[in-house]
Amino acid sequence: MIEILAPGLAIGLGAIGPGIGIGLLVMGALQAMGRNPEVSGEIRTNMILGIVFAESIAIYALVVALLLLFVGAPGLQ
């Protein structure tokens, strides 16, 4: 049971922070684009870069989840 629960919790809890972060990031970028539409191209590029960095934190959680799922925690058998 715990073998199934652990990876689920790892990715589930780990995705909360990046989710909020990406939301805030896009909010800021969209407000900036609305205020200065003439630089929206540049803002979009930086926004996507920022999203990738925020997303990679969720990916770390995913890696931990996958490790738990396919390799298993040592001493848990």
Binding site: I59, Y60, V63
Partner: peptide
């Protein structure tokens, strides 16, 4: 760690 796991995690997750 961040460089290697970011790339690995994204591509592995995409594959899955």
């Amino acid at each position: 760690i961040s460089l290697s796991f970011r790339l690995f995690g994204n591509i592995f997750a995409g594959q899955v």
